[in-house]
Write a protein that binds this DNA or RNA. Sequence first.
DNA 1: CGTACTCAGTTCAAAAGTTGAACTGGACCC
DNA 2: GGGTCCAGTTCAACTTTTGAACTGAGTACG
Lengths: 143, 143
Amino acid sequence: MIQRSVRCPVAATLDLVGDRWTLLVVRDLLRGRRRFSELRTSVEGIPPAVLSDRLKALEAAGVVVRRPYSDHPPRSEYVLTRKGHRLGVVVGALATWGEEFAESDLALVDQECGHGVSVVYHCPKCERPAPRSRVRMVGAARP
Amino acid sequence: MIQRSVRCPVAATLDLVGDRWTLLVVRDLLRGRRRFSELRTSVEGIPPAVLSDRLKALEAAGVVVRRPYSDHPPRSEYVLTRKGHRLGVVVGALATWGEEFAESDLALVDQECGHGVSVVYHCPKCERPAPRSRVRMVGAARP
DNA sequence: CGTACTCAGTTCAAAAGTTGAACTGGACCC
DNA sequence: GGGTCCAGTTCAACTTTTGAACTGAGTACG
């Protein structure tokens, strides 16, 4: 994806993971898939050349690491970094919206209570949810 | 975007808003932009033909409504529906990730307390945040 | 030993999507 | 009557994606 003169975090994120198929690959890495062949079947319809490309791009972006687990024949698996795991919230937000507004039969659940969870705004300092209506995107000069 | 045989909410959402530029258009609609010319300048670099296409697709998906505000010359503005406003959490999640992991100088803030907010998992029944580590995507047969 | 099959990709031509630049056609401005 | 703004459209060049076939090393079966 083309480098924009972006300082917008949304655009910056989409530059890294906004290409077609990329977030579906991340979704399945989050679900524990690690190998090329696993991803190839679980990301339904992805052409192998695209999967290969996306994994290279995700590696270059520091979202996954490639871990060889055999030399002969050369075999690797792909594991999310911390940076990659944090994309879970993005995938979760897409899932939450899709559950409400598109046809689907998968859901996010909290394993402890078993309830369906959603993705919401949250103020970490006040330790409380921040209602949608109160949230704005603003310029914030950073060092 | 091509119709997949998907029941995955992530894929379903990406089918509607996963095309290049689409979420940047939504970002600026969330920021209150309404007119073609406003969007054209605020979504930096978007070719007008693409903006036109994306607005048509968002309208077809029920994410925006086109509201004529003049007959001669014909002029419309584009306003998010409830469905469209709910994409705020997706855009917010992309922003949260981008703030932490990519270069940016915009932030999400709660207007009431003034603090930066992030996007997190939340269990509405238990009324508490759900830690990332506890959240799983599972099959959930729906009527 | 020979054949089949798996895994992790690569190759390549055709199709689809994107870009950039120019153009349209009203309305308003002076 | 010339210039500008708005909301787009047109089109050729370019890039990306798709789908199908192929590779090459290793394992498994008989």
